[in-house]
């Protein structure tokens, strides 16, 4: 890849990252401008659903060529579908170990991010189920992995930067304490496995599929 292409990719990546982080603020500003209620209503639910679907649409439109090519390649190769099951199993074992270390060595239970998600689930289970099984896997894999991969060619640097990026932003919205920093351990592991699966398969559908399956199972277990 020449410098001009790398520069173009870098610009697109930065735009996608900024769009992702400021999209909720943009949605909120529009809602308030047009006099939307501050309490949770069906109107707000539909508005957010459409708003987040638009973001998914924008991101897919930006990377439509490579996503389409990856999609076709994914369904042609059965090994890639099987690898989703393999990486999901790795995630379960790894996260179980990470969480056990946190709980039994550092006495850390649920992280703030996890608590927020659980709180949102109690308020609106359908909403959070859609978010964790469709929105997060598509949008976050594009934002935290594809954007970084477009710029960083060296695999191990890509995995490291992408994981630090994802881990940090899972605690950046709350108070950053030692407990919160330690709580990023499962997130670092999660993203490292997903980034590795992306690098190994050279197909973004593998980390997206893995994250969808993993989140679906965890959500089901958590709320049974």
């Amino acid at each position: 890849m020449n410098k001009a292409d790398l520069g173009k990719n870098c610009l697109i990546s930065i735009s996608v990252i900024l769009l992702y982080f400021f999209w909720p603020t943009i949605l909120k500003a529009f809602w308030e401008t047009f006099g939307g209620s501050s309490t949770v209503t069906l109107g707000m639910f539909i508005y957010n659903l459409v708003g987040y679907a638009i973001l998914v649409g924008i991101l897919i439109a930006i990377y439509h060529k490579s996503l389409k090519e990856n999609w076709i390649r994914f369904w042609k190769d059965r090994k890639k579908i099987v690898s989703i099951l393999k990486y999901t199993a790795i995630l379960f074992v790894g996260v179980l170990i990470c969480n056990s270390i946190l709980k039994y060595i550092f006495d850390i239970g649920v992280t703030q991010n996890e608590a927020d998600l659980l709180g949102q689930f109690e308020k609106s289970p359908i909403w959070i189920l859609l978010m964790v099984t469709i929105y997060y896997p598509i949008v976050e894999v594009i934002v935290f992995q594809k954007t970084i991969r477009q710029v960083i060619q060296k695999p191990w640097i890509f995995i490291l930067i992408s994981s630090l990026f994802f881990g940090y932003f899972n605690i950046a919205f709350s108070k950053i304490t030692l407990e919160a920093l330690l709580g990023t351990l499962p997130y670092l592991f999660l993203n490292a496995v997903l980034a590795f699966s992306y690098y190994k398969s050279d197909n973004i559908m593998v980390p997206i599929g893995t994250k969808m399956l993993y989140n679906l199972i965890v959500t089901m277990i958590s709320f049974l």
């Binding site: 909720p24 603020t25 379960f92 996260v95 179980l96 990470c98 969480n99 056990s100 709980k103 239970g109 649920v110 992280t111 991010n113 996890e114 927020d116 998600l117 949102q120 978010m131 964790v132 929105y135 997060y136 896997p137 976050e140 932003f169 899972n170 950046a172 919205f173 709350s174 108070k175 499962p186 997130y187 999660l190 993203n191 997903l194 994250k211 993993y214 989140n215 965890v218 959500t219 277990i221 958590s222």
Partner: peptide, 18 residues
């Protein structure tokens, strides 16, 4: 305890307090 251990939904709650 099992739920806590299995947990860690891979998603950013984006609940901006700071």
């Amino acid at each position: 305890s099992l739920t806590v251990q299995v947990g860690a939904i891979a998603g950013n709650a984006n609940n901006a307090t700071n």
